[in-house]
Design a protein around this nucleic acid. Structure first.
Lengths: 341, 341
DNA sequence: ATAAAAACTTTACGCGCGTTAATTTTGTAG
DNA sequence: CTACAAAATTAACGCGCGTAAAGTTTTTAT
């Protein structure tokens, strides 16, 4: 079991010329079946693999794909990243995962570092409001990029995300149908552009149904949504700002904080008769099933968003990095009824 | 603003010879301040950076560091990964983050792929029980590796983690001091070696305090601990297996499921008089503050574990990949009193 | 000012592999 | 068996940069 240093050596040991071996690694089907068999036989005996640095230096396009999410400590992004990773691997690519950790500076540094990785493409969920648009625009000009989750107008070759209107309309309609119309609970300055769309959808749906919208805006910045939601709720409860017994939170992480605050204050939440409040939300966070009470929420179509994102990226890559026109694909939500509303 | 293709071109534009520029990129302090200034000035005007593939091909050691965690959808690991990443960057390295997603096959594939990245070192939190020890051993033989969180006997150049005895002794002592001695709630076949140490510590501490240990083992495999905990708790409650009003969960994610089940069953948990049960746990999961009631738990010393891990890795790297003897460093827990116990 | 040391320039080779052009071998069809 | 296309081989160059050797310039010390 001697260690093989390079392709030259491996080619010699396998009895095939180096250019042919090189061809094999580029596409195993491009060589005659008999020679392919000989190479793979040698591969079993000697455990050689091409030096990726030499390969990537000489190929025009690497097989690397960058995956960038805004906040990995949010299990939602961890889950979607997992799906994206696996799809890339299945397609013969090498995914590299990065988290902006909620900071613009880090997001920019990641994009910067990504450029020198010369990735074939990038799947990018930007921070949103605090993203450095011009930096991202520059980046997208030099690297084939598909945006997901958070849309930034005109940036990237395509956007794939969830249809916020579908989320809110389902939750609002459900709540109005089964009880009082909900107030909308959100952060005053939401980090994510989806939040704005959800508020607008809420107002639109409420008006269409003939109810007066009521938006409750709480203070707080950053990505510690649960704590922001909790503190905001305590304040709202203290000031008796709730007009009805129904609340729709902009997202599940705020709702987790909302429920924690209600529990602290001894307020029973749920759809049962002895409950004082109904709370629903949007996202179907992995923990939404384990809140007390479990959270009624509108679920992202994780699988489709992820699948379409990679599909689109591969299409983009095969197209040489350009698509005729930027598309925006939105997947509808699925209402998940649990105990909280 | 012409685009610079290579170091040759950049060197010409900056008026410095290529070898000197190369030296600069390796270590800016290795050149005369005046030439350094000239290079950096040119750097501002032209935005050139060395091709990392060419660099890594020719340098013996890359500046890459691999970070491997068992399950990124667990915010605990996301948080620690964040700290590790930042430390690596601060030290001038390039971190690459990977998650095994709870699967041995993926863990092996990650290690495999990591080898061809030729990293200077790897920070590795293995899956634990289901890890492929022999594959890991092989990996560690060729790449400087520091294990953290989960120890595997003798593998890696060092281990840094938490002192499980410290966790359990603090929670057990607190619970016995303020109420009935707790039962210990855990999975029958825990994925993580820390679980075994916690059970042993529980038994030891209970006996030392003169109480009879009582371990409740629930069924379930995989990494969906919350749901396993929830279902296990429903069963335990149904079969009335609790001997006292106190429960110590092996980890927070199980506890989250435990509390959800109690809530479903209308069982009040907490240290107040009107509560039927007290529940404590270990880890201080990022969501432990938002359970209902909030969870009393023993907190990891995140910062120190992460800081010492990277410290040790850098030491290992500077030492050429070998340390005289394998060290195991354990940091004690900090008891966090909340409402559940 | 002079000598020695330090830093820089020039020249050149090597890393491992992609890739091309010219040539030879192999496989298939008539 | 001949003819011809497909596939493999040989030879050679290039990618961008690390690095070493030899010579030149600049800095520092005396």
């Amino acid at each position: 079991m001697t260690k093989i240093k390079n392709m030259e050596e491996f080619a010699a040991l396998s009895g095939i010329s180096r250019p042919t071996v090189s061809k094999y690694f580029h596409d195993p089907d491009s060589v005659r079946p008999s020679t392919r068999a000989r190479i793979e036989e040698a591969l079993e005996r000697f455990d050689y693999r091409p030096n990726i640095y030499a390969v990537n230096q000489n190929r025009k396009l690497t097989k690397n794909i960058g995956i960038v999410v805004p906040y990995l400590a949010d299990p939602f992004f961890a889950e979607i990243a997992r799906y994206l990773e696996q799809s890339c691997i299945a397609a013969g690519y090498r995914p590299f995962l990065f988290s902006s950790h909620g900071e613009q500076k880090l997001e920019n540094e990641i994009l910067d570092g990504l450029q020198s990785l010369k990735p074939a493409g990038v799947l990018f969920a930007p921070l949103g409001r605090i993203s450095d648009k011009s930096a991202i625009e520059k980046f997208c000009a030099s690297v084939p990029t598909v945006l997901f989750d958070s849309n930034l107008d005109g940036l990237g070759a395509a956007f794939i995300g969830s249809d916020n209107f579908s989320f809110v309309s389902q939750t609002v309609e459900y709540m109005t149908r089964t009880g009082e119309p909900p107030s909308f609970f959100e952060m005053r300055t939401p980090a994510n552009p989806n939040a704005n769309k959800r508020r607008k959808a809420y107002i639109e749906v409420m008006e269409r149904l003939g109810f007066e919208p009521h938006v409750i805006k709480i203070e707080g910045t950053g990505w510690a949504f649960e704590e922001i939601g909790r503190l905001g709720t305590l304040k709202v409860l203290d000031e008796r700002k709730l007009r009805t017994d129904s609340v729709l939170c902009s997202n599940d992480r705020l709702a987790i904080g909302f429920l924690a605050a209600c529990f602290e204050q001894g307020i029973r939440v749920g759809r049962k008769d002895d409950c004082a409040l109904r709370v629903a939300s949007n996202d179907d966070h992995p923990f939404a099933k384990f809140t007390c009470p479990s959270l009624t929420t509108a679920a992202h179509d994780y699988d489709n968003v992820a699948a379409r994102s990679v599909e689109t990226l591969f299409e983009l890559i095969e197209n040489g990095g350009k698509l005729e026109n930027r598309t925006e694909t939105l997947f509808p939500a699925r209402l998940v009824l649990r105990e909280s509303a």
